[in-house]
């Protein structure tokens, strides 16, 4: 299945850095160093969290993640393409197709039940990548022209990049597409039980408190609503894993430097992937938030380089 290409504007993106880079270092972090740091930090009382392989105070992670995404916002798409060898597009297509957003055509005409249009919340939706695919799928596959998507991101630079790109889609300025600046852990502007489908693609590993974000997802979803996450995950084949590690730790920060002039931000991206829980652990976290899991609870993409997790809120 092909995806319309009208929003693929990466080539035309300016390489301008939107925000000045914050002075931070995450690099030099060999695993050993990070582990020592971890032990040292554990002794202290202050609550800390991962920032890549670094440990930073929880209060600080948000701003440091913010700095990363501010600095990569405009070159983000080009980078994704290069880093994943264009595969992230296929994964996103697969993600959206498997979710099948929109009201199903053959049933929406039935008198038995009149379904209301879906409200989809795309968290960490930054550049609108997932949102545009959702709307496209709902319209062209399910012939549903009423369901809408709210794109939410903590980072205003990413959101304005998305808004800019939406101008090249049919949904610019339509009420089917809206934008909300919010931290996924505190979605107070979103009402309880108001969302049909909550998606987060390549976002949740950046959250300071992932379990809190899952609880918020549970709160805002309607009963029967679906949580869905696309994220880098754990490769389950040793050979592939070795090759993948060499690629991600070696080449990605280098490409980051060449294309975006920003090695450190991409170094962070690679390390945050490494720190993210395994498929099984993450499925456990989803269940703990109250969701029912499908069987099997996740789908590995390319041997686990990425995985799709889902959960359904019980009625």
């Amino acid at each position: 299945m092909s995806t319309p290409t009208f929003w693929r504007t990466s080539a035309h993106l300016s390489r301008r850095l939107i925000a000045a880079k914050q002075p931070y270092r995450c690099l030099s972090c060999s695993v050993r160093l990070a582990q020592e740091l971890a032990q040292e930090q554990a002794k202290q009382d202050a609550k800390t969290t991962h920032f890549g392989f670094e440990h930073v105070p929880e209060s600080e992670k948000e701003s440091r993640v913010g700095a990363v995404f501010s600095s990569v916002a405009s070159s983000y798409d080009t980078m994704n393409d290069l880093m994943s060898l264009y595969i992230h597009r296929l994964w996103k297509d697969r993600f959206v197709r498997s979710l099948n957003p929109g009201l199903h055509p053959t049933t929406s005409s039935l008198p038995s039940s009149k379904p209301t249009p879906q409200t989809i919340l795309d968290i960490a939706g930054g550049t609108g990548d997932i949102a545009f695919r959702m709307l496209s799928h709902a319209s062209t596959i399910n012939n549903d022209h009423t369901s809408r998507v709210i794109v939410s991101d903590i980072n205003p630079a990413m959101l304005s990049e998305g808004k800019k790109r939406s101008l090249e889609t049919p949904w610019a300025g339509s009420e089917r597409l809206s934008w909300v600046e919010a931290n996924a852990e505190k979605l107070h502007m979103i009402e309880d039980e108001s969302i049909d489908l909550y998606t987060v693609a390549f976002g949740i590993r950046n959250f300071t408190n992932k379990q809190a974000a899952l609880s918020e997802a549970f709160r805002v979803l309607k009963p029967g609503g679906v949580f869905a996450c696309l994220e880098f995950s754990k490769v389950n084949n040793a050979v592939l894993n070795g090759a993948y590690k060499r690629w991600s730790f070696g080449a990605i920060p280098l490409i980051g430097q060449l294309v975006a002039g920003d090695r450190e931000s991409y170094q962070y991206l690679v390390e945050s992937i490494e720190k993210f829980p395994s498929q099984r652990e993450f499925a456990g976290m989803i269940e703990r938030a109250g969701f029912m899991l499908p069987e099997p609870p996740w789908e590995d993409l390319m041997g686990g380089i990425a995985a799709i997790h889902k959960g359904v809120k019980p009625v």
Partner: peptide, 15 residues
């Protein structure tokens, strides 16, 4: 799904 009080999207429970 609708008969059981669930939503269209709830069919994601069945991969």
């Amino acid at each position: 799904a609708r008969d059981a009080g669930y939503l269209d999207v709830s069919t994601n429970l069945f991969p």
